[in-house]
C-alpha cells in the first residue's frame, strides 16, 4: 500500500473542498482499502466522509424512496420502508457480500465499486481499465465470469454490484453534489460501458460526492424480487442475476421493470422483456416468451457461452417467482 494522508470531514462543504484538492472519498472502505493494498488504487489523500449527514432513508415528496449515500448495506436492507416497498432492493443487498462487509459498506460506495476481474486486481497483468492502452488479459484469458453484453474490444469485465441491478431495473436517480452544484443522473447513464475508455466507469465528475440514490415512485401494488445465481450459494459474486418488479392490476401486467446482473459490463436493463410483458396476463407461457428476449445481442467469449442460457432461465424463473402463475 502506498502512503497517504488522511482527513476526516464533518460536512459536505468540507468534503467538497477536500475533494477539489484531489482527495479521494472513503466511505465503508471495503473496496478502496482492498484495492489500495493491491496497489491498484494509490490515492495520496483519503477524505473520510463517514461523519457526513447522508445516513437517512426517507420517503420523497413524490412518494419515492431516497436512500442516503452513507446508509450501510445492512441498514438499507433491513430498513422497514425498503423492505415493505422495494423487496428487490433488500434482497439484492442481502444476497451480496457478507454480513460483516454489509455492516461496513455503504450504498454510495456500492454503486461506485470497481470490477472484480482478476486481471484488473493483478498489477502484473495487462488491463486497459487499470492501465489504459496496456491491453486486456481477459480477452484471450480466463473469461468464464466476464460479460456477454456491453463489452468492447478494450474491456469485457462485468459490473459486480447486486443492488445496482435493482437500481437499474427501478430506474433510480443518483443525486450528486460537486463544485458546480447539485445534479441528478439517471441510473442508465451513471455506470458507463467500457467503449474506448474502460478506465472511466461512472459519470462522476472530479470531486463530486454522491449524496443519495432516489427510487422513483411506482404504481402500487408492486411485487418485486431479486434472484442471484453464483458458483457458491452465498458470499460470492453473481454469474447471473435478475431484478424484477411487476405491477399487476385487473389481472393484467401494467408495469414491468426488469434488469440482469453478472452478464453485462454494466447492470443490464431489459426493455425488450419489459415491453413483451406489459399489457399481458401472467402465465407460464408469457414468462418463457419474455425471458427468451433477455439475451438479445449477447456475444459470448471463449469460456462463458453458458451465460446466455443461464441468463434466460434466471429471468424466466424470477418472472415466475414475482409474477406467479394466474
Amino acid at each position: 500500500m502506498h502512503p497517504f494522508s488522511y482527513v476526516k470531514v464533518s460536512d459536505i462543504a468540507g468534503a467538497l473542498a477536500a475533494g477539489r484538492r484531489g482527495g479521494r472519498y472513503i466511505a465503508g472502505g471495503t473496496m478502496l482499502v482492498d484495492l489500495m493494498r493491491e496497489t491498484v488504487e494509490r490515492p495520496s489523500t483519503l477524505v473520510d466522509i463517514s461523519a457526513l449527514p447522508l445516513r437517512d432513508v426517507t420517503v420523497t415528496a413524490r412518494g419515492g424512496l431516497r436512500i442516503g449515500a452513507l446508509v450501510r448495506m445492512a441498514e438499507a436492507a433491513a430498513h422497514p420502508k425498503v423492505r415493505a416497498t422495494y423487496p428487490v432492493i433488500s434482497q439484492a443487498l442481502e444476497l451480496g457480500a457478507s454480513p460483516q462487509l454489509r455492516n461496513m459498506a455503504t450504498i454510495g460506495g456500492n454503486i461506485m465499486q470497481r470490477t472484480r476481474c482478476a486481471y484488473f486486481r493483478d498489477v502484473t497483468a495487462a488491463c486497459n481499465k487499470r492501465d489504459p492502452g496496456s491491453g486486456c488479459a481477459a480477452l484471450g484469458g480466463f473469461n468464464r465470469t466476464h460479460a456477454i453484453l456491453g463489452a468492447s474490444d478494450q474491456c469485457v469485465a462485468t459490473h459486480p454490484s447486486d443492488v445496482a441491478v435493482a437500481f437499474a431495473a427501478l430506474e433510480a436517480i443518483v443525486r450528486l453534489v460537486g463544485p458546480d452544484g447539485r445534479r441528478g443522473v439517471a441510473f442508465a447513464d451513471f455506470l458507463l460501458p467500457p467503449g474506448s475508455t474502460p478506465e472511466r466507469e461512472q459519470a462522476v465528475r472530479p470531486g463530486e460526492l454522491i449524496t443519495a440514490v432516489e427510487i422513483p415512485a411506482l404504481p402500487r401494488p408492486l411485487r418485486s424480487g431479486y434472484l442471484k445465481v453464483s458458483d457458491r450459494r452465498s458470499y460470492e459474486f453473481a454469474l447471473t442475476s435478475a431484478a424484477v418488479a411487476l405491477h399487476v392490476r385487473g389481472g393484467v401486467i401494467r408495469e414491468a421493470k426488469v434488469a440482469a446482473g453478472g452478464v453485462g459490463t454494466v447492470p443490464w436493463k431489459l426493455p425488450a422483456v419489459e415491453r413483451r410483458l406489459i399489457g399481458e396476463r401472467p402465465s407460464e407461457a408469457l414468462w418463457a416468451e419474455a425471458a427468451r428476449l433477455a439475451a438479445e445481442g449477447a456475444r459470448p467469449l471463449a469460456h462463458n457461452k453458458f451465460k446466455i442460457e443461464l441468463l434466460k432461465r434466471a429471468v424466466e424463473r424470477q418472472l415466475r417467482i414475482v409474477g406467479g402463475t394466474a
Binding site: V9, S10, D11, I12, A13, G14, L16, A17, L52, P53, L54, T60, A61, R62, R66, G68, I173, R175, V177, R182, R183, G184, V185, A186, D189, L192, R200, A203, T211, A212, E214, P216
Partner: peptide, 22 residues
Amino acid sequence: SELPDSRVPPEAEPASRLSRRT
C-alpha cells in the same frame, strides 16, 4: 454520460446546507 437536470426530476429536499462555513 450524464443528464441535464431537466431530464430527471429535481431533488425534493436538499440534503444539507452548502452555505455553512467550513
